[in-house]
Amino acid sequence: MQEFINNFNLEDYLPAVIAGMTNVLFAAAILIVGIYIASKVNRGICKMGESHEKLDDTLFRFLGSLGKYIVLAFVVIAVLNRFGVQTASIVALLGAAGLAVGLALQGTLSNLAAGVMLLVFRPYKVGDFIDAAGRFGNVTEIDLFTTVLQTFDNQQIIIPNSQIWGAQIINHSHHKIRGVDMLFGVAYKEDSAKVKKIINDVMAAHPNILKDPAPFVEVESLNDSSVDFRVRPFCHGEHYFDILYSVPEQIKQALDQAGVEIPFPHRKLIIEKEE
């Protein structure tokens, strides 16, 4: 030990010490600047979503976090490279790990991709009534992986976004004015003009049926035992289900009061007696 102290020469180690301190200072500077840039990238992307009402905040918060961690990943690689660490093997290892994770989470990633597409193209929004993936209900929540619906009987349905994006989506709330399609059949003996007047009178008295556009009432088809009328009143979207479930009963009562026969399937049986 005494021999080491006697032979120690600071000038021999000074370049290495200076180089090491320089690397530490440069690494600290890279780290500080990188964290600052990552935070700015995150805030900038989030502000893009906040500045446009039609853009979804959830998507931009996700993209902001993604951009932040991508910048931080490059910062860590730059810091390690500053200390002489061979980063090529680390990048290859991270790539292989990412591939393995991606293969293990194929379903989750497909939901994520579908969620991004739904948030970008916005075929529906929270509060809309939609028919998607064989389910119907009011959209209460949309995130990157699932869409949550509330049914009329207060059930909560959570649907993976990949099932929605890959199938037909019917948005019942997209247009403010909706047509309500209904079909009514009457007997062949009835006067078509009289039936149309009865139906029009019922719709004219309904407070939620619009006068413009005017209700549509016409004969659609001639069936085996009935003349079928296509009836399509128009209303604001929030009254759609009220009309769908109240008008048929009102028309039925009006037809009954007017003595109009509403036919039903029946068979005529003829029995012949043997002599």
Rank of each mutant, 00 (worst) to 15 (best):
T146N: 15
T22R: 01
A113N: 01
D131I: 09
V227S: 09
F8I: 05
I198Y: 09
L66Y: 08
G127I: 01
I198V: 12
A27P: 00
V75R: 02
D242A: 12
A97D: 01
R61P: 11
I209H: 01
F145C: 10
A187C: 04
D181T: 07
L99A: 10
F229I: 07
L109N: 03
I5Q: 12
G98L: 05
N200Y: 05
R61T: 10
N154Q: 14
F229P: 07
A254N: 03
V231W: 03
L109V: 04
D242I: 11
G259M: 10
A104F: 09
V186D: 00
W165I: 02
I35Q: 12
L119T: 06
M21D: 07
N171V: 08
N154G: 02
L149D: 01
N138L: 14
R267P: 03
L80N: 08
D191H: 05
L210P: 03
F8G: 03
I199G: 11
K194G: 02
A29P: 04
A92I: 04
W165E: 05
F229G: 05
M48K: 13
A27L: 01
V41I: 15
A96Y: 05
D153P: 00
V186C: 04
E190M: 06
G84N: 12
L269N: 12
N42E: 14
D191Y: 05
I199D: 06
E218R: 10
V195F: 05
E218Q: 12
L94M: 09
F145T: 15
I169T: 04
D143V: 09
E275M: 04
A254Q: 06
A187W: 03
L103R: 01
V180G: 06
M1R: 09
D181A: 12
Q253G: 11
A100K: 00
N223I: 13
E218H: 07
A28N: 10
P233G: 08
S192I: 09
D242R: 10
I159C: 06
L25P: 00
L55M: 08
V139S: 08
L80G: 13
M21A: 14
G237F: 15
F4E: 04
Q86Y: 11
G102K: 10
M203G: 07
V186Y: 01
N208Y: 06
V202S: 01
I32M: 09
Q156W: 10
R122F: 03
K268M: 12
T87L: 07
